[in-house]
Design a protein around this nucleic acid. Structure first.
Length: 637
DNA sequence: GTTCTAGAAC
DNA sequence: GTTCTAGAAC
């Protein structure tokens, strides 16, 4: 969020607003101001807080100069070694000793002095976060939940931890393809360590139930933990605010969660829970891949809060147990109703059978742009789940023609239809320039002499990317006619995806054998520009004249790029891939894919990545998402 | 997907 | 004056 705001400040000379989710904004006019602010934040202890509001704004003048100055500083080779306060990660010379360990460096951003960075990390316990080992389990649905009633409601931690472990044990025994993760913000969380110890004593399967330190609203993006649902420690009125997990989740999920919640329930009684599907527009869904929030209310032991049980733990324990049971069962039923329907229904309806939020179907496009967009054949609508894509595809065939006739001021129903047609994946919605891969897939023999075709089988074609974005960049193209992008993929295509993946791995291995310094990632673009499903096999040097702009960069280094392994897992689990198709992703600021430092433009970014030796973000180090010499040598031995 | 180019940023 | 980006055309 902050990065996006900084990006906007750069571009539009706009200052940030409190309404964007910041609790405090400080304007600094010079280096001294900055140092003062940084010192103040560094001196904060866990129990301290600063008044919220806007401080230090003298005038509404442009903010550009300060940022420009920063980037200039970051770019100069004369490194200020004195205090280290202005030493940014992008200033480090390749050979220069990095005082931070690799792990600590993971989150290093160019906009933050290392000293501050380290202190902030210490404060949050972030440095430990990336070291957490998450059991890999590609066949499980995951629920992340906070400890219920132990914060504001002051429930005894010992008793609470017993109840959590009991309820989780019971659940895990009953459901073999679901996992539960207890989440807390702090590394020092007592409830986490209590639960951890008790779970270990009960020898409960630690791949099915474990604890995790992190922000429950950023488990995937910051912690590399993909969860299908998260639980919210809600209040009885199911309203945002109050602080803690409830405020954080409502904030992170955006307004859509309030509306969606209202559709499901008005209030909640202690010991119960309610499942709310997240709208597809929710950042929590787009960024973190969370599809459901389950609100749960536990017993209250705090005399300052409503319905206090006045230390009646007989009653309290029962209610807390009920709360967890209700939460877990609600989680299970999301998954079960889905698989149940999947088995019953015919293939065409399969993907729509997952619970879809009430707001999903009401989703609107920006009104006036629709006819424009249609004329220009711009693709596709900004945010779609693959399910919606398929739904749209299904309805669109009925009235496909004369789509340019929909006037911009037509009733919303007509506009809706117009945009549906527009979202449909048909020949017409792909520009002529977008057909190249389709042609290759349908008639590879025609291109045999071009020397860019590496392999052809009945199922797929392997092609050197015509405009490679890295030293080695090839495409594994499916030859299935009509399978244009990930949005069209369902369970029937799983074996095709596996073939494409293994062929991709094979080529990566071949390239690594030729040049052991190469590291590969395999993945799909959420919303490809070229028709015909294709898997990118791309080396992570990104050293190529073909990589020219922000869109290129972000399409391979943001969550817009979906790892092949994740895609196969999602298809297997849910029958569709969680597509991150927010257009903003491609317009994000330029950040190094390894150390995450920010850079003002493509040339400077390229110069940085040519020498950045930081380790890759934690989520890529898990599984086999990065294929390097060590991956393959391990395979051989 | 790329190319071209106006105009902003430097 | 040169570098760089972003939007339109294809």
């Amino acid at each position: 969020m902050a990065a996006m705001v900084v990006n906007r400040m750069l571009k539009k000379l706009e200052t940030p607003l409190l309404t964007e989710g910041f609790s405090r904004i400080m304007f600094c006019k010079d280096d001294d101001d900055i140092k003062q602010a940084v010192d103040m934040y560094c001196a904060l202890g866990p129990s301290h807080s600063l008044a919220s509001g806007v401080f230090g704004q003298k005038s509404k003048g442009p903010v550009q100069s300060g940022i420009t100055k920063f980037f200039k500083k970051a770019d100069t080779s004369s490194v200020e070694k004195s205090s280290g306060t202005k030493l940014t990660s992008s200033e480090r010379k390749p050979g220069q000793k990095n005082p931070l360990s690799k792990q600590e460096n993971l989150e290093a951003g160019g906009t933050c002095s290392m000293e501050v960075e380290k202190k902030l990390n210490n404060m949050n316990g972030n440095e430990e976060r990336s070291k957490q080992i998450v059991p890999a389990d590609i066949n499980s649905s995951t629920l992340a939940f906070p400890s219920i009633s132990t914060a504001d409601f002051q429930f005894d931690l010992e008793r609470a931890s017993d109840i959590i472990v009991d309820a989780a044990t019971e659940f895990v025994q009953k459901h073999d393809n679901m996992r539960l993760v207890l989440v807390d913000l702090s590394q020092k969380s007592r409830i986490l360590s209590l639960v951890k110890d008790k779970a270990a004593k009960k020898s409960i399967d630690s791949s099915r139930f474990f604890t995790f330190v992190g922000d429950i609203t950023q488990l995937h993006s910051k912690g590399g933990l993909q969860c299908n649902a998260i639980a919210n420690a809600a209040n009885w009125r199911l309203k945002p605010g109050g602080g803690g997990v409830n405020a954080a989740i409502f904030n992170a999920a955006g307004e859509g969660l309030q509306h969606a919640t209202k559709e499901c329930a008005d209030t909640l009684r202690p010991g119960s829970s309610v499942t709310v599907p997240l709208p597809s527009t929710s950042p929590l869904r787009q960024r973190e891949g969370v599809t459901h929030v389950i609100h749960v209310l536990g017993p209250n032991m705090n005399p300052m809060r409503p319905d206090c049980l006045k230390n009646d733990y007989t009653q309290g324990c029962k209610i807390l147990h009920d709360a967890y049971n209700s939460l877990f069962e609600n989680f299970a039923s999301i998954f079960q109703s889905y698989t149940g329907k999947q088995n019953d229904e015919t293939s065409s309806k399969k993907s729509a059978s997952r619970v879809i939020s009430p707001t999903d179907s009401k989703m609107k496009r920006e009104d006036s742009h629709d006819s424009e967009r249609t004329k220009k054949c711009k693709l596709p609508p900004p945010i779609l789940t693959s399910r919606q894509h398929q739904e749209r595809k299904g309805t669109s065939t009925l009235n496909y023609h004369d789509n340019t006739m929909v006037p911009s001021d037509a009733p919303s129903q007509a506009r809706e239809e117009g945009s549906k047609r527009n979202g449909a994946v048909t020949n017409k919605s792909w520009g002529s320039w977008a057909q190249a891969l389709y042609e290759v897939a349908m008639h590879p023999e025609k291109y045999k002499n071009s020397n860019s075709i590496l392999e052809v089988s009945d199922e797929l074609v392997v092609l050197k990317d015509l405009y490679p974005k890295a030293k080695k960049h090839v495409l594994v193209i499916s030859r299935t006619d009509g399978l244009d992008s990930l949005a069209d993929v369902n369970k029937e295509h799983l074996s095709l995806l596996r073939s494409m993946h293994s062929v991709g791995v094979k080529w990566a291995q071949k390239f690594v054998e030729e040049d052991a310094s190469l590291i590969f990632r395999l993945g799909y673009h959420s919303v490809p520009s070229m028709r015909q499903l294709h898997l990118h096999v791309i080396s992570q040097d990104f050293n190529s004249p073909g990589l020219k702009n922000k869109k290129h960069w972000n399409s391979f280094t943001s969550v817009f790029f979906l790892d092949s392994l994740d895609v196969m897992e999602e298809i297997d689990q849910h029958g569709s891939a969680a597509i991150s198709s927010d257009e903003k992703l491609l317009a994000m600021e330029l950040r190094c894919h390894r150390c995450r430092s920010a850079h003002p433009n493509i040339p400077k970014l390229k110069s940085h990545i040519s020498s950045c030796k930081s380790s890759f973000p934690a989520h890529l180090l898990k599984k086999d998402k990065l294929l390097s010499a060590s991956t393959f040598s391990m395979d051989c031995t």
